[in-house]
Write a protein that binds this DNA or RNA. Structure first.
Lengths: 198, 198
DNA sequence: GACATGTTATACCGATCGGTATATGATAAG
DNA sequence: CTTATCATATACCGATCGGTATAACATGTC
């Protein structure tokens, strides 16, 4: 392959920058962490970072894209409606829990952006990805509405509430109050389902 | 009264600074909003702000204290256990919903801090106030556990989940997905209660 | 070896950050 | 009318911010 060794080196640096930045952003905040601190801890210099990402916001965009792609990769299949809504919901919760356990630092970062000021860089960088999640869930609830009469025209709020509930549980996990085991999965689904069907 | 007119003027400026800062912090973020912008919009100059609050962090502390006092004022009576847990929970949700509707800008700000990095200024400024809310709820669930056998030793996670659920609904309201009416109050309580008793 | 491409470091930019030294008004007490 | 206190403004501080101009270096092509 052409340029193999060159790209290897480049990708190594690129990933290292992303990893360092994700950790720093998650632990202290996107706005207060300076570029200098990132490049120092990554063992490179500023022009290298700007060579790869163009700007601080470009770096943030890259972090969002990399991680949300991972999430959506698992979420896509889980949101396919098979006629059994509780089964789909269960699978979706499993996907989120597994993702949060695999990338807790990123999940904390993206949760912070979730409630960040609508005009902040973090909110804007993550917005399109939430809309994709919301869309996947809305489609599922819309299809399921054909089988559950009392769900009609409520797919948007169901999707939002379901996502919110999932994030609540994950936040509790991230703060050390509980584990994200299979029992929690079923507890969440049962609780949410009860709010829907009654 | 002594110093009356002096303090009147002072309080007017002090409140104006708090109002302006709350709005700016909530809409764009604590870290990115500079002192200069706050004093410009408040129609004063920097030394005046530092005279009242000492530092940017002091201003943030004052904002937290003012608003959380308002919230806890209503939350205290609502968390008194009377033997009817669902009734208490309903009243608590009403208090939170009313507060969120009265001070949406502050609620957005404090929700952002809820998930902010643990080492960030916002998280640290709000931490002690969350702990007070958590404590009030824990006591309620602990007392209620005497009447509900299957609740024992779970008061901490119940308090955390309940608070998280409330904040989820409020976040959905703040994003324009739903209203915080009496129907939502009962929906929330019913849904949460189902997760507890079963 | 000449050349093109991609990668990196040194050193710097203007702007803005949070915070303050100094001085002046305003107000009330004696 | 003096004096003390609070309140406020002008002008400034060093530090750091995101970002870049310039040049050197590494690598693969021809």
């Amino acid at each position: 392959m052409l340029y193999r060794s060159v790209y290897d080196k480049a990708m190594g640096n690129k990933e290292e920058i992303i990893n360092v930045a994700t950790r720093l952003f998650a632990s202290r905040g996107y706005d207060v962490v300076g570029i200098q601190e990132i490049v120092d801890q990554a063992g490179i210099s500023k022009p290298t970072l700007y060579h790869y990402f163009g700007s601080k916001n470009g770096l943030l965009t890259a972090i969002m894209e990399l991680n949300f792609r991972r999430l959506l990769l698992g979420l896509g299949p889980a949101t396919v409606y098979s006629g059994d809504l509780p089964l789909s919901l269960t699978e979706i919760v499993r996907v989120y829990f597994k993702f949060a356990r695999s990338f807790p630092e990123f999940y904390r970062l993206h949760l912070a952006f979730w409630f960040s000021p609508p005009a902040s860089a973090g909110f804007l960088a993550a917005k399109e990805w939430w809309e994709k999640q919301q869309q996947l869930l809305e489609i599922l609830f819309m299809l399921a509405a054909n089988d559950h009469g009392n769900m009609k025209d409520r797919h948007r709020i169901y999707a939002a509430t379901f996502l919110g509930t999932i994030n609540t549980y994950i936040a509790i996990f991230l703060n050390g109050y509980a584990d994200l085991n299979e029992e929690m999965v079923h507890s969440l689904v049962k609780q949410f389902s009860h709010g829907i069907y009654s």
